[in-house]
Structure formats: C-alpha cells, structure tokens
Amino acid sequence: MADFSLRMGFAKQGPVIWLSHLEVVRAMERCVRRSGLPYAVSQGFNPHMKHSFTAALPVGTGSNGEYMELGLASLVEPQQALCALQAVQHEHLPVLSAEYAPRDAPSLQLYYNEAGYRVVFAEASGEAGCSSSACAPECSTDSPESQTQAASPVEELLRRLHTRQSMEILKKGKPRIYDLSLYLTGAERDASDPNALLLTILSRPEGSLRPEILLAALSRPDLSLKLVSLTRVSLQHKELA
C-alpha cells in the first residue's frame, strides 16, 4: 500500500444491496475521487487507485460494516478525511468511519475472516411465504394447531444448522463437501424477531462458505423458507487453530 492507509468503514444498504462486489468497488472509488482526498495511484502501465476491500458480499446482501483500505499520498486528519468523504458519499453507501491502519496491519481480507449475518425470513404463514408452488404442502393447511404444534420452518432450519455435520454443494459441476464445524461458528435466533436468525461464518485459507448457499442447502428439500433479507452485521478477526 501507499504511505498512509486510511481504513474506511462503510455500509451497503437499501436498493444497492443488489450491486455486485465490483460495482461496490467502482462506486466507492468514485466517492473517493469526488472527495478530493490525495489518494495514491499505482505507477506505470495503467495507473489505478490503491485500495483493498473486505471479502466480497454476495449480490442481494447488505452490510452494516464493510471496510475499504485506501492508500493516501499525504496525511489527512482522519476526521477531516471522514468529513470530505461524507460530503460526497452515496446515500446508500455511507462512510461510517475513517482511521489509519497500523503500518504492519495484515490485509483486510486476511484479517476479517469471520462474519456475522442476520437472515430474515418471511412469516411462515401468509401469502408472502407461499408464492411458489413448491411450498404448497406446508402452507396449504389452515389449521392453527398444526402450525403451533409443529416446529416452524425457521426453528427446523436452526436445528439443522446446529446438528448437520456437513453439506454438499456443486461447484462448477463438481460436488464439494463442506465440514460445517470448520465454517459455521455460530447460529442462533435473533431475540428481536422470531423469523430472523444470526449466523457466524468463518472463512478459511482453503475456502469460504457463502451464507445464502448454506441456507439453501440446509433448507432442501422440504423447508419452504422465503428469504426477506440477508445482511452482514459484523466482521471480526478469529485466530485459526
């Protein structure tokens, strides 16, 4: 990186959750250019802004706290940099914080290897959850008893998150087995909402697991859960054993 590494925290919210990682990167680069900060550019062949980002968010996933590390060619007070960025930020990609990273700090992607996600599902009953014909068997019953007695689909999913040892997904046509104990480090109910779960997923040097793929794999074939939103709520560092 350049002489000074400004670590900017930002969120991805509202309609822009549908942006791809590359589109987020481009939008943040434009915010930096608009801010007038003295950003560093690479030398030579094709000068480009020096920066790095935390691990890519899937399309359709929001975040309350991403990081971008920006190389600056000269020192700007962090508070002043934050003000300059906030003055020109996109309303749905707000810059939340700015501070200098220590000189020997590891890269963002290596450091922030554990992410918390909040998943919200549609109400188990009601039309929102029943728009696809696949869920007809669960939802066709009108009996209130059957719904209160049986575990709700969210509860059943949580049980599977706690008990399943592994899952298999197809990657480029080839089956790949994930040992869930290595990747899934937490799964609990969100106390504020019966239809929401909190997941913690660890990314490892040998691979990472995307939350929406995990949820889809564990819901198959019988759970009819309709995802309302998926948000990365935290990023933290975890020492790998």
Binding site: G14, V59, G60, L227
Partner: peptide
C-alpha cells in the same frame, strides 16, 4: 424487489444512482 433474486444482473433495475 422480489423478482430481483431471480434475474441476471439485478443492479440494472434498482435505480438510486448518484
């Protein structure tokens, strides 16, 4: 919005640009 998860490149349809 409910359709966006099912289509290629949903960012085409969201608007909200600068």
């Amino acid at each position: 919005e409910q359709l966006l998860a099912r289509v290629e490149k949903p960012s085409r349809y969201i608007g909200a640009e600068l």
